[in-house]
Amino acid sequence: MDPKSSSDNIHPIRSGRGIQEAQVWEAADWLLQEGLRPTIERVRQKIGSGSPNTVSPMLERWFATLGKRLDGHGVSPADGQANQLPLAVVQAAQQFWDLARREADQVQVQKAEAARRELDLQREALAQKESDLAQRESSFEQARFAHDEALASSRQAVTAMEAQMHTQQQESARLLSDAEAEVRRLRKALDEAVASKEALRETAAMDLVAAQRDGREAEQRHIAHERRLLADVDRERVAARQAAADLAKEQKARAADLDAARAAQAAAQQALQAEKAAHRDAAAAWSRQQQESQVELATLRERATGADQRATDLALRLEHLQAQSEREIAFLRESHALSKTALSQPGAQSVVAEKAPIKRGKKASK
């Protein structure tokens, strides 16, 4: 049937751009009759207009009804009634259909062969994966067994370690308790030692103050004794001078006695000078001893330990010095008494002169 005559009974369907589906079908028939495969672009070129979006669904419906039309059941794009195609169109469509089927069969065979090869490759890969998986399962089983053994050993080690830690904690707690008790004891002993040290320091300070006071008092007494002795010596000098003047008046009458008196006076003066020098030496020794005592007292102030013993030693030394000073004072008094006796008794001047060196020798030996 002529496409133009077949299109007279078609009720056109308006598209969005003014292209009718009958026009698309007619253009596809002409392309098929020309031996060309109807495509969207060829149909658009045949019609001369139309968008791909509009032509595509109309061309798909043409392909859907092509089989029925080739079998003799014509289908109109509008009402689906029988529509006989021209013989040339039918033959071209049949050739095209056979070519499409062969191409489709060849494509299907190629696809099946490719699918089979892909399936073989997948089977080989699956077999390799299964082999790898079996090896991994074996390795995993061995690793799991080793892990279980290691876990059991670790649990035993953890249990032993926990027991050891518990024992160590108990021992640490005991040692800590003992250490705290020892710290408390040492702290108490330290407090007692500090208190004892403070008490000893206070006692030493008091003893030091008392020793310094006693030293000052002894020094003052010594100075007073020295002053009294010097005053006595001065008086004796005045008396000696007066005696010398009296002896000078009697020079003519008692020349021999006067010479002896002068010798005795010289001896007495020498004895007095020696005694004064000895007294100064004793005072210097006393000063040195006093300085040493002060140094020892300063050392005693810095050292609290042994303060009582040192204070006792210092008191004994002061007593010794005081006794020595008293002995020296007694010696001076005795010398003074001998001098007075020598001056009052001219005949005994030689005896005094002889005794004075002996006394000085004894004093030096002391």
Rank of each mutant, 00 (worst) to 15 (best):
D2F: 03
S5L: 14
I10N: 04
H11V: 14
R17S: 14
R17C: 13
Q20W: 10
E21V: 10
A22N: 08
A22L: 07
E26H: 09
A28F: 01
D29G: 00
R37S: 13
P38A: 09
T39R: 05
E41R: 12
Q45E: 09
K46M: 02
K46F: 07
I47M: 00
G48E: 03
S49E: 08
P52L: 05
T54W: 05
V55L: 14
P57N: 06
P57T: 03
M58A: 03
M58D: 02
L59H: 06
A64C: 08
L66Y: 07
L66R: 11
R69G: 05
H73M: 03
V75W: 04
L87A: 15
V90M: 08
Q94A: 12
Q95H: 13
Q95D: 11
A100H: 03
D105V: 12
Q106L: 10
Q106F: 04
Q108F: 03
V109W: 00
Q110R: 15
A112Y: 04
E113Q: 07
R117V: 15
D120I: 10
A127V: 15
E130F: 04
S131V: 05
A134N: 03
F140V: 13
R144P: 12
R144F: 10
F145E: 13
A146K: 15
D148P: 10
E149K: 08
R155K: 13
A157R: 05
E162N: 15
E162K: 13
E162C: 14
M165F: 15
M165C: 15
Q168P: 04
Q168E: 09
Q169K: 13
A179L: 08
R184C: 10
R185A: 13
L186K: 05
K188T: 14
A189R: 01
A193D: 04
A199F: 06
R201D: 14
E202N: 10
A204S: 14
A205F: 09
L208Q: 12
L208I: 15
L208F: 09
Q212V: 08
D214Y: 03
E217W: 06
R221N: 06
R221C: 02
H222R: 11
A224F: 06
R227W: 03
R228F: 04
L229T: 11
R235N: 15
E236P: 01
D246S: 11
K249G: 13
R254L: 09
D257E: 15
L258H: 11
A261W: 02
R262M: 04
A266K: 05
A266Y: 01
Q270M: 00
E275D: 00
K276W: 10
H279Y: 08
A285R: 06
S287K: 08
Q289M: 09
L300S: 11
R301L: 08
A304H: 05
A304Q: 03
T305S: 14
D308E: 11
R310Q: 07
T312E: 06
D313G: 08
D313C: 00
L316Q: 13
E319D: 12
E326I: 09
R327I: 12
L332S: 14
E334A: 06
K340Y: 02
T341H: 11
G347N: 07
V351S: 01
V351I: 00
V352M: 00
A356G: 04
A356K: 01
K359S: 11
R360N: 09
K362D: 14
A364N: 01
